[in-house]
Amino acid sequence: MEKNWPLWEIFVRSKNGLEHRHFGSLHAADAEMALENARDVYTRRSEGVSIWVVESKNITASNPENNGEMFEPAQDKIYRHPTFYTLPDEIKHM
């Protein structure tokens, strides 16, 4: 019948205190196998303490063609950043 193993995205936490980071992808028939394969493929050199696996088809990604409307409007909202506000140098702890 030859139905191919689906693709999974692998996220690994390198050590406690850090977030899970996208490490790459691999093929597996089910979630359990994806976890085991991820362990063997992506943490052979002690790169991780925790693994998430997500089947690739379940990820919804933004479309780069919409990057203008998605991300550019944030660029001129400089008042969200602390450097927007001028304070006299004498003010400490702020």
Partner: peptide, 16 residues
């Protein structure tokens, strides 16, 4: 390996 990969898929579907 074909029968092995097929079996893993069939098993995953059954579990689902």
């Amino acid at each position: 390996g074909t029968w092995v990969r097929d079996a893993a898929m069939a098993h995953a579907e059954k579990q689902q």
